[in-house]
Nucleic acid binder design. Structure first.
Length: 778
DNA sequence: TTAGGCGCTGTTTTT
DNA sequence: CAGCGCCTAA
């Protein structure tokens, strides 16, 4: 191995990176230089004369692929690095499917449905079948279908699977198999694949077309898989098939960081690896270079509570470091203020940059309190995950036009834009077409040509034909214009740009700007592709494939990158920050209440916590709130069990009871105006009062009297607080904002969910939840 | 047909 | 507190 490369690795890393032929597995503890080893091994392969075209490197996220490519580029040059097949499972196999699609009767320009499209299709099918969508919840149904695909269970297999059928019968969803079959058929008729299909169909391709299998088996002489613990069965099998000839399969992972079991990832794959390649070489990376001793050892103490794990001892030579701080806050807003203050102070004290800080939470919904708190101190931040750029309505709308142009059978795209901007094609007309198409098992686009059969005529027919003509006019340019030029053309000629321009509200302007940004992205894309391959133009469908698989916020460069990062713990995997705040450390939040049922699920939560802690280089801070608003309602919380699970010696617990700042409802700082897009850089803002001492704790059901008080009836000027729960008793006369005077007949349920049956002379008998009804006792 | 209002319901995590 | 779906009024 190249001497210079060699010198930059430790012994264990070097051994793994220098490995040439034969299967190998690297078990790499957090922060042990896993990516480094992968990059160096690839660099070593290339320097040893292996053609980059013969190397396949699979990662889990776009981010990881990009980073790896850059690192390899630095080691062996960008030219070589570019030729390596490196990317996510989904993007690599989308690329291969596109080459081979005619074998499985898919159009070359097949579209990729994102989760929203897929769920929408499921929903339509459930509706068309006349099923109750309260029993067949589209999201749940979709998840089940998804997990089938990840386990390579086709609709036909499903019908034959007694266990699945029995399970469905038991849960009262006997039509599940039928929905799955219909869903699959509809995707096919639409020339579309969902995310899972990219793996499923690849397996079909490799199974049914030996010549294809052979070609790729020989092409990919070396296969490397990152984050192997997160692969599912479909991915496992692809790797196994492709690697079967050369057996130069290298997998890298950490069982302690397996956090995607919920989506079909299977630790079993690691065991299968031993079985499939009995002669494999095993390397363990146990030295952590990222974190302090405190963090490494605390993390070890956490993960040791798990039963399922591969033995390893992660250690570090780094300094001892500061203890893990635990903070108790009174409310979720206080937690936000604490974190934001700490960031402010730490930045001063340690001379750190904003980008050295991360706020990690279990669910995306938790970000709000932190956004507000950071804004108060003018701290710049960036939220990762959540609604991505490509999921915004205006972007999806324009993309739908693109999709329809490339693939007119794309049902979801068609439904999205056939009447947007409004062109007088209403629900009735569309329904006729959808039903007709479903009956004939053809696409809606094909159904349009036979509109008369389902009674679409007159004005409606004319409008539709105009629409068809427009799309066809776009199609003419598919091979003449590049993605950018055609994209621009479509944006203006579809009427979308004009429609958005008409809206002069700040939100409307933002939407218009987003479209411009998308077009800018297309320009960049087109220029780049044409630079790489000067003989052909960058087509619109190339762009669509790229975009469909680009989910996480990859467009980081908006000039100023010194920002605090906020993201879910899942999103933080693979990243590191000097200072990490893990927030919302509460029972039922983290660990999630959905994980309380089984040991396996709890262990996954614990691994998630392990991932969170090990993101920190210098210091980790845990915080929790005693009460927080959850789905619009105050609820009380207990500290997470995970706090106790950390060996005490590494902790700095709160000494005094948390200082109580203003509870929600009378917090004057909430009077701030302005709206949040939840995305853009924070705007400079006048300093709001930091902390308002709270005179008295209001009752839990305290609600500020809104400015939009009822305009008639008694109580107009009555600003007295609403009645507390114990004042409401059967027989008591009460006053309601809308229904007026009434008499309590009975009560049921327990606080805070007490429901009262009240008779109102003006409105009749009503059942009201006390926590919502602002009742006043007369 | 469309827009706007009201009431219901729901919160993991992501390619 | 949202976001969504359904309903109603124009």
């Amino acid at each position: 191995m190249n001497q210079q490369l060699l010198s930059q690795l430790n012994e264990a890393q070097r051994a793994a990176a220098a490995h040439m032929n034969g299967a190998m597995m690297v078990i790499a503890g957090a922060g042990s230089g896993k990516t480094r080893v992968l990059a160096y091994r690839i660099a070593n392969l290339v320097q040893s004369g292996i053609d980059p075209f013969n190397i396949l490197a699979l990662t889990f996220t776009n981010k990881a692929a990009k980073e790896m490519k850059e690192r390899i580029g630095k080691l062996v040059g960008d030219q070589e690095a570019r030729n390596i097949w490196m990317g996510t499972f989904h993007s690599i196999f989308a690329r291969i499917l596109r080459i081979e699609c005619d074998r499985i009767n898919y159009p070359r320009d097949f579209t990729i449905y994102d989760t929203t499209d897929a769920k929408s299709l499921v929903k339509d099918i459930i509706k068309e079948m006349g099923l109750d969508d309260k029993i067949y919840k589209p999201g749940t149904v979709y998840n089940r279908i998804s997990s089938c695909k990840n386990n390579l269970i086709s609709p036909q297999d499903y019908l034959k699977d007694v266990d699945l059928i029995a399970d469905d019968r038991q849960t009262g969803k006997p039509k599940m198999a039928e929905i799955y079959a219909k869903y699959d058929m509809r995707l096919f008729k639409s020339g579309a694949m969902d995310f899972d299909d990219l793996l499923f169909k690849t397996n079909v391709l490799l199974r049914d077309f030996p010549e294809v299998l052979h070609r790729y088996q020989h092409k990919f002489q070396f296969i490397l898989v990152d984050e192997y613990q997160d692969t599912n069965f479909a991915q496992y099998l692809i790797v196994k098939q492709l690697g079967a000839v050369h057996e130069n399969v290298c997998v890298v992972g950490d069982d302690a960081q397996s956090i995607y079991a919920f989506r079909g990832a299977n630790i079993q794959n690691i065991l299968n690896f031993r079985r499939d390649y009995p002669e494999f070489a095993m390397y363990k990376l146990e030295q952590n270079y990222r974190s302090t001793k405190v963090i490494v050892e605390a993390a070890n103490s956490i993960i040791s509570k798990n039963k399922d794990q591969i033995k390893k001892q992660v250690w570090t030579d780094n300094e001892q470091g500061q203890p893990i701080r635990v903070h108790k806050a009174a409310t979720d807003n206080d937690e936000g203020n604490f974190v934001s203050n700490q960031i402010f102070i730490t930045k001063q004290e340690k001379g750190a940059a904003f980008k050295d800080f991360a706020i990690l939470y279990r669910t995306n919904a938790q970000s709000r309190a932190f956004e507000e708190a950071l804004r108060k101190l003018n701290i710049p931040y960036r939220i990762y995950g959540g609604l991505s750029f490509y999921q915004r309505k205006e972007i999806k709308d324009l993309l739908a036009y693109f999709r329809l142009t490339c693939n007119p059978n794309d049902e979801e795209a068609l439904k999205r834009v056939i009447n947007y901007p409004t062109r007088g094609i209403g629900k009735t007309t569309l329904d006729k077409l959808v039903v007709g198409a479903a009956e004939r098992e053809i696409s809606i686009w094909d159904m349009i040509a036979r509109s008369q059969e389902v009674g679409v005529s007159g004005a409606a027919l004319n409008k539709i034909m105009e629409f068809v003509t427009m799309i066809k006019s776009f199609q003419v340019d598919l091979n003449l214009k590049n993605a950018y030029d055609l994209g621009h053309h479509i944006a203006s000629h579809s009427g979308l740009l004009k429609d958005l321009y008409a809206d002069r509200t700040p939100e409307g302007v933002a939407r218009y700007d987003n479209i411009q940004e998308l077009l800018n992205g297309m320009k960049e894309f087109s220029d780049r592709k044409e630079l790489e391959n000067s003989e052909s133009i960058a087509s619109l469908s190339d762009f669509l494939i790229d975009v469909a698989l680009l989910t996480d916020a990859d467009n980081v460069d908006d000039g100023d990158n010194d920002k605090v990062s906020m993201m879910t713990i899942h999103g933080a995997k693979g990243l590191e920050f000097p200072y990490v705040n893990i927030v919302g450390m509460e029972e039922n939040l983290f660990p999630s209440q959905l994980s309380l049922n089984s040991r396996e699920e709890m262990e996954e939560e614990r691994r998630l916590f392990y991932v969170a802690i090990t993101r920190a280089e210098k210091r980790a801070t845990l915080s929790y709130a005693l009460s927080r608003y959850r789905w619009g309602q105050l609820s009380y919380c207990e500290p997470s069990r995970f706090i106790e699970e950390i060996d005490e010696q590494y902790l700095e617990m709160p000494s005094a009871p948390a200082a109580r700042t203003a509870p929600r409802g009378i917090d004057f700082s909430k009077e701030r105006s302005g709206f949040s897009t939840g995305y853009s850089a924070p705007k400079p803002r006048a300093h709001a009062p930091q902390e308002t001492p709270a005179p008295v704790s209001p009752p839990p059901n305290f609600k500020k009297v809104s400015a939009a008080a009822p305009t008639s009836g008694p109580g107009l000027f009555d600003n007295s607080p609403p009645a507390t729960a114990d004042q409401i008793q059967p027989g008591v006369e009460v006053m309601h904002d809308k229904f007026g005077k009434g008499k309590v007949l009975s009560l049921e349920g327990e606080a805070p969910d007490i429901k009262a049956t009240i008779f109102f002379p003006s409105a009749g008998q009503k059942q009201l939840l006390l926590k919502f009804a602002k009742l006043k006792v007369l």
